[in-house]
Design a protein around this nucleic acid. Sequence first.
RNA 1: GGCAGAUUACCCGAGUGGCCAAAGGGGGCUGACUGUAAAUCAGCUGGCAACGCCUUCACUGGUUCGAAUCCAGUAUCUGCCA
Length: 397
Amino acid sequence: MLGRTGVINTPHGQIKTPAFIAVGTKATVKALTPVQVEQLGAQAVLANAYHLYLQPGSDILDEAGGLGKFMSWEGPTFTDSGGFQVMSLGSGFKKVIDMKSVDQSGPDDAVAPGKERLANVDDDGVWFKSHLDGSKHRFSPEISMNVQHQIGADIMFAFDELTTLQNSRGYQVESLERTRLWAQRCIAEHFALTDSRAGKEYQALFGVIQGAQYEDLRRKACQDLGAMAFDGFGIGGALEKENLGTIVGWCSEELPENKPRHLLGISEPDDIFTAIENGADTFDCVSPTRVARNSAFYTPHGRFNLSGARYKRDFTPLVEDCSCYTCQNFTRAYIHHLHKSKELLSHTLISIHNEHFTVSLVDAARNAIEDGSFFELKAKVMSEYYAGNPDPQGLPA
RNA sequence: GGCAGAUUACCCGAGUGGCCAAAGGGGGCUGACUGUAAAUCAGCUGGCAACGCCUUCACUGGUUCGAAUCCAGUAUCUGCCA
């Protein structure tokens, strides 16, 4: 058991860990007001440097007084570095999943069929083609840090290269070394910027651990970055659901005990428990809100799609005992109707529920660690989540 | 009353002799979504005992080896002239 509880102190308050961080890529948790985000229980919000740099421009956030002030969120904030976009705009995330079983032998920089490559990596940084207007932009460790300092979140991430499962081991090694060098440059730039902004509140920098599914690479990355002056670490990269726990475990064993570990982009209930058990402190994920906009809702018995005709006359809440605003006030039939008639309120109501569900799950795990009932809770959650929905995603085996 | 035109699947709408159970939308149904190019994407959408059969393109009859497509009549609708 590597799971633990703790507290992350930020200029905008504490984060009790384990904690689920709501994703607000473009300085908004999609479809939700900050008041709603707070009331559903989220402790912090994570935005994205690449997106805010393109629109409205990180200088605007700077002028506004920083991310929190700009979006009127008073709690702690994070920014991702734009590293994820190296992959998603580079190889095309959607197609990469499809290609998993198709082509393992192609060139490492292969672009999915029918996709235009919008990012190209070199040792110094990345050329991005804006997904908004096609204009060309340069991101590097230094640029990412400057952008993130302008955005002004409490916790920032180092600029990294996220590889895919299709990349060869050779490429993973090459990429990992690039990410290591970039981490050093991020720290140097971060300190330079921190010095030049004397008097400002302390902002933390997390390094990002890559290394795909390879134990030696993961451990080495942790040792390398763990020795650097980071305030915490993100565990990122291509990982299959089955080895998520194992990989997080390797990282937790190697990384400094006294620094927080954030698992990037994970939120399915089983994954959360696996990750917490293996030492992850915080999480973020787009899933609760994205899936909500496509009408799927989480329940203790699995994830279901509210667009189904079977909910047309279902006058029960999304989840019977749920304490969220949505479940306290609305029925499945009503939200089904909103979704079918394309009313925007469906996005809001389901997002509130899904975020609340995920945040609460992590909160429950935290409490369970404290009173020693973590494994009991995990067993209960896991068995229930799959009982009503034996194979919700074809996983796990 | 006269002249001209229209009628296609749940809706809109292509198709004017065989490659047509019939393009394309919409709607409907199902599924996917894990550091957000995602209010997105994919599949299905006449019936069936289903690699084949049956019933459909307003209705009735006809021409033809073969008709959603051509002809005649009927019905309804739309313009213009009275």
